[in-house]
Design a protein around this nucleic acid. Structure first.
Lengths: 114, 114
DNA sequence: TTGGAGTATCGACCACCGTCGATGCGTCTG
DNA sequence: CAGACGCATCGACGGTGGTCGATACTCCAA
């Protein structure tokens, strides 16, 4: 077969002269995008920074509502988003709600960003 | 000063008994959120996976439009988003547009996710 | 120079997201 | 028990983002 002949074998050559590369599976892409989307908000990054810097990587809501410049319902909403994504876990201790960082989930994000 | 006395010193104690932690600066949080937002889309993750797996970490648009299930304008739009975020760089070679991955920018994202 | 192929831009539509005030639900404390 | 406090949920609003078809732009080839 001549080098100028177009091939129909699995090792096909595209118009610009490169071998095609299979993209990431769409389902897996959806999963990863959902995780990144949960992280892609400035207020949520601030909340995570507070929790991450706190002893035991856990913090109480009352400390966070004072630290960021949004209303209490908005803080609650953002925390729920992070819990739903599996990045935080919620635990009630009496009147207060505590949130703990899931370090493995965050490590997983760093992993597929490599 | 008694332990039950509320303090107004910098080492204040909040209602739930922890020392307050300063959150991430809002401007820096905006910067990081913008980067993560650019990554937080399944189609963009698929495009990045193609580029990342290609020799030299660069790929031609024509290979990508065939690999993902969206229209050509949409592919162009997503690539522009990644270029604007500084994750990709664009280069024209004759008729074709090539995109190269900025590995340092990705490393920076992994860095502040630690 | 003219045609065609590869990309980018435009305009529009629809869905989703961040935000808030108001309100409901638990929990502790007089 | 009643009130107060901490937090979650609801409903609504405005802004943003993903998608497409149509179209303009750019470069190469004939």
């Amino acid at each position: 077969m001549s080098v100028t002949t177009l091939s129909t074998t699995p090792q096909e050559i595209s118009a610009c002269g490169t071998a095609p590369v299979e993209p990431l599976d769409r389902t897996e892409a959806d999963r990863r995008a959902a995780l990144l989307k949960a992280l892609a908000d400035p207020v949520r990054l601030q909340l995570l920074s507070i929790i991450s810097a706190s002893p035991g990587r856990e913090a109480c809501v009352c400390d966070m509502t004072e630290a960021v410049q949004v209303s209490q319902p908005t803080v609650s909403h953002h925390l729920k988003t992070l819990v739903d994504a599996g990045i935080l876990s919620r635990e009630r201790r009496g009147s207060w709600a505590w949130f703990r960082l899931d370090v493995e989930q965050l490590a997983a994000v760093r992993g597929f960003l490599a």
